[in-house]
Design a protein around this nucleic acid. Structure first.
Lengths: 140, 140
DNA sequence: GCTAGAATCTCTAGCCACTAGAGGATCAAG
DNA sequence: CTTGATCCTCTAGTGGCTAGAGATTCTAGC
């Protein structure tokens, strides 16, 4: 267990520059270096990076991950805070789904109504423009 | 019709700095100025900004909006391209909804299973950590 | 004409979470 | 001892804005 950064990346699915970035923003600690100044990691970093990756995949923000990481280090503390972070994130996800679904509806209505003819008859452009007329004066 | 930027902002719901930003990236043209170097807008800019705002609200990227704007200026052209932009955007929205719903499922499962006890029993932390044990050795 | 305050101007920098690339050093295998 | 993969630091870019400094201009009332 004295992994160079590339090996850590391979084992955690977090890219090399991202690992260095996480070190820079203090999400992971600066590891020991070789004589030639290269980073070497141990088992703890694999766990920590996996934790971070999972949380990121679930859409948690870095600041929330920071808190979750602190908590995970205090196994005897109450998990109330973790619960509340997760719940507020769930609400946020719900809001996003709702907005995307409304948007989806509008988009697909637009597309359905498009007659595949000229721009001036196109519902897509029309919806975006809100009020746009297709006067026959422009017709060749 | 010789609107200062603030009035244009009020009428379109696009914020003043955002209007200047759109000018900078070439989404709208640089308008004429007063002697004192202040921007003055006409009706066309209201329409164009409304178009842009609607498209942004529907989640279209600026580059796509650029194309849609060009199309909207050519009323006799085929709307095939607008259709395909909208359709690919719809697919993208569908993908996002799908991902968010999977994520939502995982999150709410996590939260449901949280016993609201100690961190070491907490499903939330556990799921993130993937493999973490709550050994009684740590218990006070 | 004068003044006050709102609105405008330009410019730089910051947000989030990375990603890309330059230019050079180090490592491991043969 | 060489080769080629990996590593290093540093800067800058992504998208779509947003914030703030510090200066100027506009407009309404007197």
């Amino acid at each position: 267990m004295n992994l160079p950064i590339g090996e850590l990346a391979r084992r955690t699915g977090v890219k090399v520059p991202t690992i260095r970035f996480y070190e820079q923003i203090g999400l992971i600690a600066a590891p020991p270096r070789t004589e030639g100044n290269q980073r070497r990691y141990g088992k703890a970093e694999i766990d920590r990076l996996n934790f971070i990756r999972h949380a990121r995949e679930l859409g948690f923000e870095v600041d929330h991950i920071r808190e979750l990481l602190v908590m995970s280090q205090e196994p005897q503390a109450s998990c109330h805070q973790a619960d509340s972070i997760a719940k507020s994130h769930l609400r946020e996800v719900d809001r996003r789904i709702e907005r995307l679904q409304a948007l989806r509806g509008e988009l697909s209505r637009m597309i359905d109504e498009c007659g595949h003819g000229r721009i001036c008859d196109c519902r897509i452009i029309e919806v975006l423009a809100d009020h746009r007329q297709c006067s026959s004066e422009h017709v060749a």
